[in-house]
Structures are given as structure tokens and as C-alpha cells.
């Protein structure tokens, strides 16, 4: 799949933003009054900024409001609803805290749960796709949620949360990469099943349907630049998981090391998300004898 910057930024920053909102909702940390403003500002800026980035992926964004209509079947529509509802609930929670100095723990807990459901709906846009076997598994959602909690813990400067959730995400990541590498073959998709010609023998592409490229190839059959995948995985794993955990262990409750942890985590997760798309093989590539 084409690793478009808009969807990489969308998933990375909305994940971090909603992850941070989860921690703020449960009161870790629990700043009061105007002191709370910068916390909520960062969380909302990331969540909303990510959602705005996602609209750059649309070919015809003027109809964007219609995306709220199909929540009964569409994960994208559910994601739109959950994002708006979560931002509303947490907006009330934040405004009451900042401007009125009123804390509403029950609303915060509801908002925290809704924020995680939002991350789940984001993950399901990818995990639902049978056409991309690497994504089509519940561990895709698990990793998105663990990363939101872990990234949110770094933003919350919470050492235990960072070590626990970034650690769990690291374990999930190892499984997701390993199982993901094998799932395409495991599902039994091949050029023979794609063409139905397997009974006759071994199939190969003889002539492509078009000499140039097309939307299908540029969007879904992204095969260039995968050669550095292993190196990138190692870099992403160290930056996104190992480094923030080490920084959290040595920092205690000091704040400044968390800024460094956040920066390396974001760089690592941007690399991880680039791989998430670039390594994902769509079955339509079989019709082009490419994967």
C-alpha cells in the first residue's frame, strides 16, 4: 500500500492525541485550572491535527460531512462519529477544569474509554480489509491501542505507564511483524486463485494490461523501497520502544527526559507507520504478478 504522508500523520498523531486524552481523562496527570491548559492543548492539537491530515487523503473533501451517515456498516463513518463525540466529551471535561476549576472524574473516565474506542475504530479501517492480509487481524487493533496508551503515557510523563504499555506494544509489535510476514501465504492467495487458472498449471503475467502506471498500482501495489525494511524495523523498534522505555526508567518523575522520549518515540512511530503501509501487500497485485 502507498505510504501517503497524510495517512501516516493522521494515524500517528490522532493515536497520540487520543492516547493522551485517555490518560488525562483518568487523571494521570490531574492538573487543575489554567495549569491544565497546555496539557489539553497538546492532546487536542494532536488529535484534531491528525484528523485534519486525514482529509488531505480525500479526492473530493467537499462531501466530508456525508461521512457521518453510514455508521451502521462503515468503520470510517464510525471513526468520524467517535472522534467527534470523544472530542466533545473531553472538551467539556477540559473546559470545566480549565475555566471553572470543576473536575468531573466520571466524565473523564467516560471520555477516556471513548478515546480508546476512537483509536479502535481507526485501527479497524485497516484491520477489516481482507484484501490486505497483513492488516486483517485483531492484533492490528491491539497494537494501535497499546501504542496510543504508551504514547499517551510518555506525554503524561508517567514512568510506570510508559514502561508497561510501550513494553506491551513492543511485544505486540514483534508478533505483528512476524505473523504479518507469513499471513499472505497462509491465506492461500496466489496468482492461480486470482485468475482461476491454477488447475491448468503455473501462471505468470505475460503482458500487463497497460504499459504505464495507474491508480491501482500507485495506490495498492507499492513495491519500491522495501529493500531497507529490516533496517527500518530495527531503527523503528529502538526509537519507538526501547529508547522511551530506557528514558522512562532513568527519569523517575523528572519532566525533561520525557520530551526527549516523546521526540524519539514519534520519529520511531513515523518509521513504524511508514512500514505499516509500505510492507502491506494488497491481493490486487496478484493480477499484475507483483506483490
Amino acid at each position: 500500500m502507498h505510504p501517503a504522508p497524510s495517512v501516516i500523520f493522521f494515524t500517528v498523531f490522532s493515536g497520540l492525541g487520543f492516547g493522551f486524552l485517555t490518560w488525562l481523562g483518568v487523571g494521570i496527570p490531574a492538573p487543575q485550572g489554567w495549569a491544565a491548559f497546555p496539557y489539553f492543548f497538546v492532546a487536542f492539537a494532536m488529535a484534531v491535527g491528525g484528523l485534519i491530515a486525514s482529509t488531505f487523503h480525500l479526492g473530493n473533501p467537499k462531501n466530508a460531512l456525508k461521512a457521518f451517515s453510514q455508521w451502521r456498516t462503515s468503520w470510517l463513518s464510525r471513526e468520524a462519529w467517535m472522534a467527534v463525540l470523544t472530542l466533545s466529551a473531553m472538551g467539556i471535561f477540559a473546559a470545566a477544569n480549565i475555566f471553572l476549576n470543576i473536575s468531573m472524574p466520571p466524565l473523564g473516565i467516560i471520555g477516556a474509554i471513548m478515546a480508546l474506542i476512537t483509536v479502535y475504530t481507526t485501527s479497524m479501517m485497516y484491520a477489516q480489509l481482507k484484501t490486505v492480509p497483513r492488516w486483517n487481524h485483531w492484533t492490528t487493533s491491539l497494537l494501535f491501542i497499546l501504542l496510543a496508551l504508551g504514547g499517551g503515557a510518555i506525554l503524561a510523563a508517567d514512568s510506570l505507564g510508559t514502561i508497561l504499555f510501550i513494553g506491551l506494544a513492543a511485544l505486540a509489535q514483534i508478533y505483528v511483524w512476524d505473523a504479518g510476514d507469513k499471513r499472505f501465504a497462509k491465506r492461500g492467495h496466489s496468482i492461480e486463485t486470482a485468475t482461476g487458472l491454477g488447475d491448468m498449471g503455473k501462471v505468470r503475467m505475460y503482458e500487463a494490461p497497460h504499459s504505464g502506471t495507474n491508480y491501482l498500482l500507485t495506490e495498492m501495489v507499492y513495491v519500491i523501497a522495501r529493500k531497507h525494511a529490516i533496517k527500518l524495523r530495527i531503527i523503528a523498534f529502538i526509537l519507538a520502544y526501547i529508547a522511551p522505555m530506557l528514558l522512562a526508567i532513568i527519569s523517575g518523575r523528572g519532566f525533561d527526559l520525557y520530551i526527549l522520549a516523546l521526540i524519539v518515540h514519534i520519529v520511531g512511530i513515523l518509521a513504524q507507520r511508514w512500514l505499516f503501509f509500505a510492507e502491506a501487500e494488497h491481493v490486487v497485485g496478484l493480477y499484475y504478478d507483483k506483490r
Partner: peptide
């Protein structure tokens, strides 16, 4: 009503949809 999100093309195994 189409917003051009491309998700339908992603979900099609056959490459039947082009944006």
C-alpha cells in the same frame, strides 16, 4: 456523495475501482 477516500478500492480484491 463520494468523498474520494479510496477505501472501497482498498477493499476490492479485483482492482475493479479506480479513483
Amino acid at each position: 456523495a463520494c468523498i474520494g477516500c479510496g477505501l472501497c478500492a482498498w477493499s476490492c480484491p479485483y482492482g475493479a475501482r479506480e479513483l
